[in-house]
Amino acid sequence: MESQLSQSGNVPKRASDTALSMATAMDLKLFKVFKAVVESGGFTAAQAELNIGLAAISKQISDLEIRLGMRLCTRGREKFGLTEQGKVIYQASLDLFCALDEFRGRLGNVRGELLGDLNIAVIDNTCSDPNSPLINVLQDWQAQAPKARMRLSVAPLEEIEQGILKGQFAAGIVPVYDDKYEFEVLPMYRETSELYCSHDHPLFALDDAAIDDNLLSQAEYIDHVYANHQEKFRPLGPRNISAIATQVEAVAMLVMTGRYLGHLPVHWAKIYVDRGQMRSIKAKRFRVNTPFKLLYRPNGRSNPLLDVFLQIMQQHLSDKVAVLASGQ
């Protein structure tokens, strides 16, 4: 006696199977919108990235949820966040667009062109550092890949590292304090930071010779969370840290209140020093040289755009070493 299944010749589809089959034929535009919303941190912030209105973004995310048969994120009055299913779909979308970029790269190789997007991330407030070759590297990369698109993001250290590992970024330029075994690492340059106070701070008017350990022990300091390492506070200890900042500009704001001392990159603080609004405190004692490195995933998918970027970066770094060696 034949069963109903054998008579039909087909196994009935489950709801999840239907959602999956629909997802495989999904318009990539919806996944692109979803990816942009996640990476922008919400619907409102994604408007500039996508160049469409809030209502259109909301509708397209709703369409994607309906067609996938699952809720991807919270919105409305709730703080934006991904559901557990949304996290899986976001990672899958990263893999999808990485695969598309790889396809474009292979197509471009056949045609002798560099095509697609290259996603690079950098830490905040590094543009003015004369030691960084990034701007010159970007210029040369644009010249070699005129039909490709550079997507340059500024993000905190932890987000850059996680973004590289997840495939959101092809590479990142960050301060590196510890060995990074999970990445391929290209050493780039060192950023010099010094300890600063503002013109409203009691130490501003004193010569370095008059600033002894007793005065320093009474001062209050800023803990720069993502750019902190032992060397910065080793001479004084952490007992006087009474403020926390997560970005260079936040450190500068707190320094400018006149209450705190804080480490800032010399290249970034220069504009305040030139205006007479800040000064460095005992530069030789508190100077810190932070290594900046380019990180990228080992054994990742073939990425011709990244390969060219790395080649140009290595050439600039080699040229700089040669100039320094020649004493010019």
Score class of each variant (00 low, 15 high):
residue 3 S to W: 00
residue 5 L to C: 09
residue 10 N to K: 12
residue 11 V to D: 04
residue 19 A to Q: 05
residue 21 S to P: 05
residue 25 A to N: 11
residue 30 L to N: 03
residue 31 F to Q: 00
residue 34 F to K: 02
residue 38 V to Q: 01
residue 39 E to N: 02
residue 46 A to M: 03
residue 48 A to W: 01
residue 51 N to M: 09
residue 52 I to E: 09
residue 54 L to V: 08
residue 59 K to H: 10
residue 59 K to T: 12
residue 60 Q to C: 02
residue 67 R to L: 15
residue 67 R to W: 01
residue 68 L to K: 03
residue 70 M to P: 03
residue 71 R to S: 11
residue 72 L to M: 03
residue 77 R to F: 13
residue 78 E to H: 06
residue 80 F to T: 07
residue 81 G to E: 06
residue 87 K to H: 10
residue 91 Q to G: 08
residue 95 D to V: 04
residue 99 A to S: 02
residue 105 G to W: 05
residue 109 N to I: 13
residue 116 G to V: 03
residue 116 G to M: 08
residue 117 D to E: 13
residue 118 L to H: 08
residue 124 D to Q: 14
residue 124 D to C: 07
residue 127 C to Y: 15
residue 128 S to W: 05
residue 130 P to N: 05
residue 135 I to K: 09
residue 140 D to K: 15
residue 141 W to V: 04
residue 146 P to I: 10
residue 147 K to H: 14
residue 154 V to M: 09
residue 156 P to I: 01
residue 157 L to A: 09
residue 167 G to D: 01
residue 170 A to L: 06
residue 170 A to G: 01
residue 176 V to T: 15
residue 177 Y to T: 02
residue 177 Y to M: 12
residue 186 L to E: 08
residue 187 P to G: 07
residue 188 M to V: 10
residue 190 R to T: 14
residue 191 E to W: 04
residue 193 S to I: 03
residue 197 C to M: 01
residue 198 S to T: 05
residue 199 H to L: 13
residue 199 H to E: 12
residue 199 H to V: 15
residue 212 D to N: 14
residue 216 L to G: 06
residue 219 A to C: 12
residue 220 E to M: 13
residue 220 E to R: 11
residue 222 I to M: 00
residue 223 D to L: 14
residue 223 D to Y: 13
residue 223 D to V: 04
residue 224 H to D: 08
residue 231 E to S: 14
residue 237 G to L: 00
residue 239 R to G: 10
residue 243 A to C: 05
residue 251 V to C: 06
residue 257 T to K: 00
residue 260 Y to G: 04
residue 265 P to T: 03
residue 285 R to K: 11
residue 290 T to H: 06
residue 292 F to C: 03
residue 294 L to E: 08
residue 301 R to A: 12
residue 303 N to H: 12
residue 303 N to G: 06
residue 318 S to A: 14
residue 318 S to R: 07
residue 320 K to Q: 12
